[in-house]
Design a binder for these strands. Structure first.
Length: 615
DNA sequence: TGGAAGATGACGCTGTGC
DNA sequence: GCACAGCGTCATCTTCCA
């Protein structure tokens, strides 16, 4: 079911081996065992020998991953499965293609699990080709995995459990045991079922777990030990932890050699461009960029994914890897309006012949809000605002600034200026009266963000600021989406995930692209109301379908929508950034975070749509 | 008067650029 | 090495209203 990449699965194998290596280290190595030891797996150790004669339940935690899964698999299917089919089942369950496994077995015999695994891993390294080639080769594998994944689990000697899995009729316990047989950890499976629902097909659950593993893997980079295995009690120690883990990473790299070097390259951070203009901005620098998209990434549908540019390291490279290895287009909205907004966009849209939504918004604060010009002090040299966030300064802060300024007869002393400038930059204050630096109003924020004035009216200020702070900057997104106008003269069908207050819909509307059918997925009832209200106010003639939760976007519903209006032309969305944003002091957990992990739902749903539309 | 809703302010860390 | 920016979270305080 994973859309683009069999290599996703192959990458995923690494941390799972690592986990088990940790288990070996924990259970069998003394405290002095270093990283090199833990990584130099001796496949003929006593552990392995012990495992071969140990029931699955007791093998968990002490076997290597392959052996662990195989032991379980063997037990589960021993009643009526042949050794050959069990081996195939085992490795297919790990994500290797059936053809690859058969080939490896032909070369090494079916009994030498270690040798087969070595060959498969070698194949996986060979698979690591440049983008075009990689995706061409991936595509065939991916289509198999995507549409026929249950079939891959079957062979002529399938056990009853396997057959049940292909009919998606397992209860929770059955699903867990099947996925555990496939090599996933019971805890991972349980979380996936909780998140996706008991009725979710095995293949989707498998996708979800893979996605979670990818995120975890990305966060750990080359670190082969999970954080939880190391005790740190304070933030000071967290720094030490990082140091230790970096050292371990180095040891790992040294030990694993070229293979690991390649992995390191895979995890390299996406660098932010300076200036942050993506493939070009209106009235400015135009980068003569030619990009070739991997075949697997080509539409239909077109897709467009957005999130904050300044994420913890590794996040964008992970996102990119999931989205067909397309490099993010990082753009700062300060090139489109009077406020900064550094965002990354991954999409498969054409990048030439873009045009701007007209009228183009002013790029300077005083042009956007002329009434501020009169009061703007000469020593405040800001021409543009910083990123508009979800919360704004308080009225009390404005009062403090006024009091500080009124104490000065003429120009305030340097330390006062410094304090005020800090506050102005931090809270995006604008000068609306003598000595009066105030927060921008929701209506002003709407203008800056490219929405109609009063778009969010009817809700309290906090809600409006939150919704607007989370929204697309319409002019920026509109510039990227403008290429769709000539492609869809008859209108467009849109699947809008994490819609918020409808930035994508507003952008398409302002571009003059008719919205035929829009499925808008948004958890916030207030935001859904805002979009519904806008839809009615702008006399949209198409259909607007609201869905509250991305979890409700199941294969059945996607199939229903595709059957109903013939497919989606655009899958667009910016998943929550709560756990990625720098301003989050509490839970900047990366893609593993409670909210930001919803990116994997974007990926899941895009994958569903692509799979169904390609059939 | 008490509960709900809104407003306020303290909070940490990362990555980038100079 | 420093300054700066950053789609946030949470506990507490204040205001509103029945």
């Amino acid at each position: 079911m994973v859309s683009g990449n069999i290599s996703f699965y192959l990458h995923l194998k690494v941390p799972r081996y690592v986990d088990v290596e940790d288990a070996i280290e924990t259970t069998n190595m003394d405290d002095n065992s270093d990283c090199e030891k833990s990584l130099s797996i001796d496949w003929d150790t006593e552990d392995e020998l012990e495992i071969e004669s140990t029931p699955f339940s007791s093998a968990v935690g002490s076997a290597t991953a392959g052996q662990e899964a195989f032991a379980g698999c063997g037990e589960a299917s021993s009643s009526n499965g042949s050794q050959t089919s069990r081996v195939i089942h085992h490795f297919v369950g790990m994500g290797f293609s059936k053809d690859m496994v058969v080939r490896a077995m032909e070369e090494n015999g079916e009994n030498d699990i270690e040798a087969i695994l070595e060959v498969l891993l070698t194949y996986s390294a060979i698979e690591d080709l440049p983008p075009e080639e990689e995706h061409l080769s991936d595509d065939s594998c991916a289509s198999k995995v995507a549409s026929n994944y249950p079939d891959l689990l079957l062979d002529e000697n399938s056990s009853p459990v396997e057959e049940e899995s292909t009919h998606y009729s397992l209860d929770k316990d059955g699903t867990i045991s099947l996925l555990v047989e496939m090599g996933y950890q019971a805890e991972e499976v349980s979380i996936a079922i909780d998140r996706c629902g008991v009725d979710t097909p095995i293949a989707e659950l498998s996708d979800f777990i893979c996605a979670a593993q990818m995120a975890k893997e990305a966060d750990f980079h080359l670190i082969d030990k999970p954080y939880e295995n190391i005790e740190f009690s304070s933030q000071e120690k967290r720094k030490d932890k990082r140091k230790i883990l970096q050292e371990e990473a180095w040891n790992v790299k040294r030990t694993k050699g070229i293979e690991k070097e390649q992995m390191q390259e895979d995890y390299e951070e996406c660098r932010l461009p300076n200036p942050m203009i993506g493939f070009g901005v209106p009235n400015g620098t135009w980068c003569q960029v030619r990009r070739t998209l991997p075949e697997a990434a080509l539409g239909p549908p077109y897709f467009y994914y957005e999130n904050v540019a300044l994420t913890p390291k590794g996040v964008w490279s992970t996102i990119s890897r999931f989205l067909f290895d397309i490099a993010p287009e990082f753009v700062d909205s300060k090139h489109f309006c009077a406020a900064a907004r550094k965002r990354g966009y991954i999409h498969n849209l054409p990048i030439h012949n873009r045009f701007q939504i007209l009228p183009a918004p002013p790029l300077k604060i005083t042009e956007a809000f002329p009434h501020t010009k009169k009061w703007w002090p000469s020593w405040d040299n800001r021409e543009q605002l910083n990123c508009l966030l979800t919360c704004v300064g308080s009225a009390k802060l404005t009062e403090r600034i006024r009091n500080a300024l009124e104490k000065s007869v003429r120009e305030p002393p340097i330390h006062v200026k410094k304090f005020i400038m800090e506050q102005c930059k931090r809270w995006n204050l604008i000068w609306v009266g003598k000595n009066n630096a105030a927060t921008i109003e929701p209506e002003e924020m709407e203008v800056l963000m490219g929405f109609p004035v009063n778009h969010t009216r009817g809700f309290n200020r906090s809600e409006r600021f939150k919704a607007l702070g989370n929204a697309f900057q319409v002019d920026t997104v509109g510039y990227h989406l403008s290429v769709l106008k000539s492609l869809f003269p008859g209108g467009i069908n849109v699947l809008s995930l994490f819609s918020g207050i409808g930035g994508a819909e507003v952008a398409l509307h302002r571009l003059g692209i008719h919205l035929n059918n829009v499925v808008s997925v948004e958890l916030s009832e207030s935001c859904r109301t805002i979009v519904r209200s806008w839809w009615e106010q702008t006399n949209q003639k198409g259909n607007l379908i609201h869905v509250a939760d991305v979890q409700e976007v199941t294969a059945e519903r996607v199939a229903e929508w595709i059957g109903s209006f013939g497919g989606f032309d655009l899958v667009i969305g910016g998943s929550p950034c709560n756990n990625l944003a720098g301003r989050n002091h509490v839970s900047r957990d990366g893609l593993e975070g409670k909210h930001s992990s919803l990116f994997f739902d974007y990926f899941r749903i895009l994958d569903l749509v692509k799979s169904m539309m390609s059939q």
